[in-house]
Nucleic acid binder design. Structure first.
Length: 486
RNA sequence: GGUAAGGUGGCAGAACGGUCAUGCGUGGGCCUGCAAAGCCUAUACAAGGGGGUUCGACUCCCUCUCUUACCUCCA
C-alpha cells in the first residue's frame, strides 16, 4: 500500500538505513533533491567496490531526473589522510601531487563508465577554513575539546551516538578493539583536528595540523547542500564510524536532522569475501574496463539489489556480458527494422499485443526503480523488451512502427541505467550496408568463399552479421577484452 | 562477545500470504550455403533445520544453525 499519491516523482522511495523505512528522496512535493556521496580517498586506483557505489548513485540520479526531479549531487575527494601522506613519502612526491594524479585518473575512468559528473567534487584540502569554522562551532557548544595531540569530538555530548549503526556506546567502549589514547577523555572520541606540523599542514586556532577524516564531509556537505541533506550515502562499510561520526558532528552543531535518507551500498566481494587491501583481492576499475568494458561493468553492478553484496566472479561477469550482447544486438535489430528494411508481415495480429507488452515493460521498469532502486528488476524488464523484439524479428513480424517505439524505449531505459551502445556515424553505417549488400550478391551467386571473406573483413571492424531468411542484420559490437581471451 | 544483513533450483537473482519471475547453464527443434546470434520447446526434488500463527507461508512470529559485513583505515 503506497502512502503517497503516487504521481510520478513522489512515488520514488528509498530505504533509509537509520529508520529502516522507505521514504521519498524529494520529500513532500519538492522537485529538487540534494545528494551527498562519500567518494574516494585518493591514494590508489579506484576499484570495483567504488564503482558499484558510484554507479548506484548515478542510476539514482538519472532516475530522479527522469521523474522530473533535479538532483544536486556533491561527491567529495578525501585528499588529506595518513595513507596519502605515507604513500607520497614512499614515492618521494608531494601529497598534493599524488592526490592530483589519482583524481585525474578517477575522472578518466568514471567518465568511461558513463557516470554523470557530479555538480561538484569538493576536496578536503580546499575547505580547511570551513572545517576550522565547523570545529570552532563544536568547541563553542562544548562538544569538542583541545587535547595534547589534537582536537576531539566528545561523543558523550551527543546522546544519540550510535543511532545509525545500532551500536550502544558502552558496548563500543567495552570492545577491545578501540585504540587507547591517553589524550582522549573517552576512547570513543574521534579526532577533528590532528596536530602535526609536517608536510601537508595548516594553521589553526589550536595549532598547526590537518583535519581528521569525518569532519570534511560534515563541513563540505553543509557548505554545498545546507544543514539537512536529502540523501547521504556511500558504501555500507562507512556506516560506522564514518557516517555515525558525521551525524554526531553535524547534528550537534545544528540541532537538526543531518540527512533525511541514509543510503548504503553493499560490498563487492571476491569469492564471497569483501574486496580489501589486506586480503589483496582488489580489482581495479582500470583493469575491469580493459577486461569487460563499461556496459558490462554497469550491468554487473546493477545485477542485484544495491543494498546486498555482489560477487565479482567470472561467471557473474559473463552473465552480464551475455546480457549486454543481447541488448546491443537488439538496438541494431530495431534500428534496421525502423529503416524499413522490409521485414515482411508488419501489422500481424501479434502486434497489438506487442504494443501492450512494451508499455507494460516500461511501466515495470520505472516502477522497479521507484521501489528502492530495484535495478535487478529494472534490467529484467528491459530484457523483456529485448526478447520480445527478438521473437518478433525471428517470426518476421517486426513492424517498423513498433520497432521505432521499442527502440526509443529501449534507448531511454538504457540511458537511465547508463548503458551506452557504441556510436556509429551514418557514413560508417552506409559503408557497412553496402559491404553487406555486396556480400549478399556473392551469396546469391554461390560464391561462398568470397562471401565468407567479406564477413571476416567486417568482423575485424567488430561488425557481426546474422543471415536471416529474408535479410541480413548486422550489429556493431563493443570491443570487449575478455572476449578476445577466450 | 555486540550489531546489521542474509541463507530460494547446477549457478546468479526477484516478487508475493494462496498461480514460485527472469537470466545463465543443459536437452531437442527451427532459421542459415556454412556460421554466429536469435527464436521455439523442454528441463529443475528450489526455498538451512525445527516449531508456531493461518483455511493456506518461500512470504508473518519464535528458535536453532550457517554465511558475510561492521565493531580498526575502508565504497
Amino acid at each position: 500500500m503506497t502512502t503517497d499519491g503516487g504521481n510520478g516523482a513522489g512515488s520514488i522511495a528509498i530505504r533509509d538505513t537509520l529508520s529502516g523505512k522507505r521514504s521519498s528522496p524529494s520529500g513532500q512535493g519538492s522537485d529538487t533533491v540534494s545528494i551527498y556521496l562519500c567518494g574516494v580517498t585518493v591514494y590508489d586506483d579506484a576499484h570495483i567496490g567504488h564503482a558499484r557505489t558510484i554507479i548506484t548513485f548515478d542510476v539514482l540520479r538519472r532516475h530522479l531526473e527522469y521523474r522530473g526531479i533535479r538532483a544536486t549531487m556533491v561527491q567529495n575527494f578525501t585528499d588529506v589522510d595518513d595513507k596519502i601522506i605515507a604513500r607520497a613519502r614512499d614515492e618521494g612526491v608531494q601529497a598534493s601531487e599524488l592526490g592530483e594524479r589519482y583524481i585525474k585518473r578517477y575522472h578518466e575512468e568514471f567518465e568511461r563508465l558513463n557516470v554523470l559528473r557530479a555538480d561538484s567534487y569538493p576536496r578536503a584540502t580546499e575547505h580547511i577554513q570551513d572545517i576550522i569554522g565547523f570545529i570552532t562551532n563544536l568547541i563553542e557548544k562544548g562538544a569538542a575539546y583541545v587535547a595534547k595531540n589534537g582536537v576531539y569530538f566528545a561523543v558523550s555530548e551527543f546522546a544519540q551516538y550510535g543511532k545509525l549503526s545500532g551500536k550502544k556506546t558502552d558496548q563500543l567502549r567495552s570492545g577491545a578493539r578501540i585504540e587507547i589514547d591517553e589524550a582522549k577523555r573517552d576512547p570513543l572520541d574521534f579526532a577533528l583536528w590532528k596536530f602535526d606540523a609536517g608536510d601537508p599542514s595548516w594553521d589553526s586556532p589550536w595549532g598547526a595540523g590537518r583535519p581528521g577524516w569525518h569532519i570534511e564531509c560534515s563541513a563540505m556537505s553543509t557548505k554545498y547542500l545546507g544543514d539537512c541533506i536529502d540523501v547521504h550515502g556511500g558504501g555500507r562499510d562507512l556506516i560506522f564510524p564514518h557516517h555515525e561520526n558525521e551525524i554526531a558532528q553535524s547534528e550537534t552543531r545544528t540541532g537538526r536532522m543531518f540527512a533525511r535518507i541514509w543510503m548504503h551500498v553493499g560490498m563487492v566481494t571476491i569469492g564471497g569475501e569483501k574486496m580489501s587491501k589486506s586480503l589483496g583481492n582488489i580489482r581495479s576499475v582500470g583493469r575491469a574496463l580493459e577486461d569487460w568494458g563499461p556496459n558490462v561493468i554497469r550491468l554487473f553492478c546493477l545485477s542485484g539489489h544495491y543494498s546486498k553484496p555482489v560477487d565479482y566472479s567470472d561467471e557473474n561477469l559473463r552473465e552480464s556480458l551475455a546480457r549486454w550482447r543481447q541488448i546491443e544486438a537488439c538496438h541494431y535489430e530495431l534500428m534496421h527494422a525502423t529503416r524499413g528494411a522490409g521485414g515482411g508481415g508488419g501489422g500481424g495480429p501479434g502486434d497489438a499485443g506487442a504494443a501492450g507488452r512494451l508499455a507494460d515493460a516500461v511501466v515495470r521498469f520505472d516502477a522497479a526503480l521507484d521501489d528502492d532502486l530495484n535495478t535487478h528488476l529494472a534490467v529484467s524488464a528491459l530484457m523483456d523488451v529485448v526478447s520480445d523484439a527478438n521473437a518478433l524479428a525471428a517470426g518476421g513480424a517486426l513492424d517498423p512502427g513498433w520497432a521505432a517505439d521499442a527502440g526509443a524505449e529501449l534507448s531511454r531505459m538504457s540511458r537511465t541505467l547508463g548503458l551506452r551502445v557504441p556510436d556509429m556515424d551514418p557514413a560508417e553505417a552506409a559503408a557497412v550496408d553496402s559491404e553487406v549488400e555486396a556480400r549478399n550478391g556473392l551469396r546469391r551467386q554461390g560464391r561462398y568463399e568470397e562471401a565468407d571473406a567479406a564477413r571476416d573483413r567486417l568482423r575485424e571492424l567488430h561488425v557481426e552479421l546474422f543471415d536471416r531468411r529474408d535479410k541480413t542484420v548486422w550489429v556493431k559490437r563493443e570491443k570487449i577484452g575478455a572476449d578476445a581471451k577466450n
